[in-house]
Amino acid sequence: PAEQSKPKKAEPEKPKPKALEKPKPVKKLKEPKAEKGEPALQKASESAEAKAASHAAAEQAPKRKSITAMLVSLVEKHKRYPKAARRAGMEGVVLVEFTVDSSGKVTGASVIKKSGNGPLDSASQELSNRIIGTAFNVPNAGMKIQVPIRYSLD
Rank of each mutant, 00 (worst) to 15 (best):
A44E: 12
G142W: 00
V72K: 12
I132G: 00
R80I: 08
A52L: 07
A53N: 03
E126G: 05
G37W: 02
A2P: 11
T134P: 01
A40H: 09
L95M: 10
K65P: 02
K113Q: 04
E13Q: 08
E126Q: 12
A2M: 14
A50P: 00
Q60C: 05
S5I: 11
Q42Y: 15
S152N: 15
L20T: 12
A58I: 00
S152V: 15
E91F: 03
R87H: 07
K33I: 13
G116V: 06
A135E: 12
V138E: 07
T99M: 01
K18N: 11
P82H: 08
Q42G: 10
V72L: 12
E31Q: 13
E38R: 12
Q60V: 02
A61M: 07
R86S: 14
K114L: 05
E21W: 00
P1S: 09
S110L: 13
A50V: 08
K28P: 14
V72R: 01
N140I: 05
A44D: 11
R80S: 04
A44C: 02
K27C: 03
G37R: 07
A40R: 10
A61C: 01
T107A: 10
P17C: 01
K65V: 07
T68H: 12
V96S: 01
P32L: 10
D101A: 08
K8V: 14
A50R: 11
A50L: 15
P23I: 11
I131Y: 04
P139Q: 12
V26F: 07
H78L: 06
P32W: 12
K27M: 04
S73G: 13
S122C: 04
A61Y: 04
K14F: 15
G37A: 06
E126R: 14
E91Y: 04
